[in-house]
């Protein structure tokens, strides 16, 4: 197949854009510096399409589509921002803030939190919905890391990195609906996990203060998920 046959041209926010046929709307947009907010997406991990923040309008589609999993098509007309989409995104973000206990001022991730940053970027100045204040545990049994379920947004990045990159499958999700929790093994204390390799990848990819390194808890520690794509490329290179 020739290179041209693999190229699709489309418009994103009325800008002409070309992309490879196997790229998603999100990838095409980011390559052209068009910003679409995301939370569960992380380069280097599989997509789950769960946070719904990257929903965009595609002309002709009956529903809004998640940019992270929707492939580009020839002639596609994509709108990433409109009053309606922006309003939905803000409300979705409010739902995140209201469902658990995101107290930014006393959070270890304050200043380095993707959820907090999204609120700033999307202009969410307050939450219209009542906060739920669920009683959720903090597990500090691991010698180096802590999981604070109060800050968890259930993006499952930790679950994916642990299964897809580290291959340990220590992290999983239990329960369903609002009762869902990320767990290690059979919901055992993290420190007693028989599968955890203590590699810390889950901590680096966590977008909020749900997973953090104990030693840097008070230091507004920045996370470093940038290693992922490189790791992936290197591994794929080894396999070839």
């Amino acid at each position: 197949m020739s290179a041209e046959a693999n190229i699709r041209t489309l418009t994103i926010d009325e800008v002409d854009v070309s992309a490879r046929a196997d790229q998603t709307i999100l990838e095409a947009a980011r390559e052209h510096n068009i910003e679409i907010p995301t939370l569960c997406h992380l380069e280097g991990l599989s997509e789950v399409g769960a946070c719904r923040l990257c929903l965009v309008q595609v002309k002709g589609a009956r529903r809004l589509l998640p940019a992270c999993v929707t492939r580009v098509e020839e002639g596609m007309e994509v709108t990433t921002h409109s009053p309606r989409i922006d309003r939905y995104r803000t409300m979705v973000l409010e739902l995140f803030f209201a469902e658990r206990n995101h107290v930014c001022s006393v959070c270890v991730a304050n200043g380095n939190c993707e959820l907090q940053t999204l609120a700033l970027r999307l202009g969410m100045t307050h939450v219209e919905m009542p906060y739920q204040y669920p009683q959720l545990p903090v597990d500090a049994s691991h010698p180096r890391f802590t999981v604070d379920h109060n800050r968890c947004v259930l993006c499952t990045r930790c679950v994916r990195v642990c299964g897809e990159i580290e291959g340990a499958n220590t992290w999983g999700v239990m329960g369903r609906g609002a009762q869902s929790l990320v767990i290690t093994d059979l919901k055992e204390p993290w420190g007693e996990s028989e599968t955890c390799t203590s590699c810390g990848k889950c901590v680096q990819v966590c977008p909020t203060g749900a997973l953090f390194e104990k030693s840097r808890a008070g230091m507004r520690a920045q996370k470093h998920p940038e290693f992922l794509p490189y790791l992936r490329i290197m591994r794929e290179g080894e396999q070839q």
Partner: peptide, 21 residues
């Protein structure tokens, strides 16, 4: 719907709780 929501996406997981309340 709230108890049957799988919990994967936030509008359904948290939105049904808010509507129920």
């Amino acid at each position: 719907c709230m108890t049957e929501s799988c919990g994967k996406c936030v509008p359904c997981r948290a939105g049904t709780v808010q509507m129920y309340e």
